[in-house]
């Protein structure tokens, strides 16, 4: 499992507004060449917060990534974000 590559891609997208825009326009192109499993690539390409959480991405890395894609902090964002994590629990976060 390439949790590091998954988390690193999310980290970069969080930090770079222009990269985030390219990712939202064409996720496959931005993810091309990264050493990801098919499951990770799909979860990332779909910005599937629930799947990424279940793959073991740290909640804070996930939160920042989702915030970037949403354009910034707002209460509606929080509700939408938490809606995707319903029923999950935080597991072992050691990498």
């Amino acid at each position: 499992m390439s949790l590091y590559a998954t988390s690193r891609a999310m980290w970069k997208i969080t930090r770079e507004k222009e990269l985030a825009e390219r990712f939202q326009a064409d996720p496959e192109a931005v993810l091309a060449g990264l050493d990801l499993t098919d499951v990770e690539r799909k979860a990332l390409a779909e910005s599937n917060v629930r799947a990424l959480f279940e793959l073991g991405v740290h909640p804070f890395v996930l939160y920042h990534f989702a915030l970037r894609l949403a354009g910034g902090f707002s209460m509606p964002f929080i509700q939408q974000y938490l809606g995707q994590l319903q029923g999950l629990t935080v597991g072992d976060l050691e990498t």
Binding site: H58, F60, V61, Y63, I78, L82, L85, L88, T89, V90
Partner: peptide
Amino acid sequence: NAIGGPQMA
């Protein structure tokens, strides 16, 4: 707090 996690709220 549980920022970013399912218990955030």
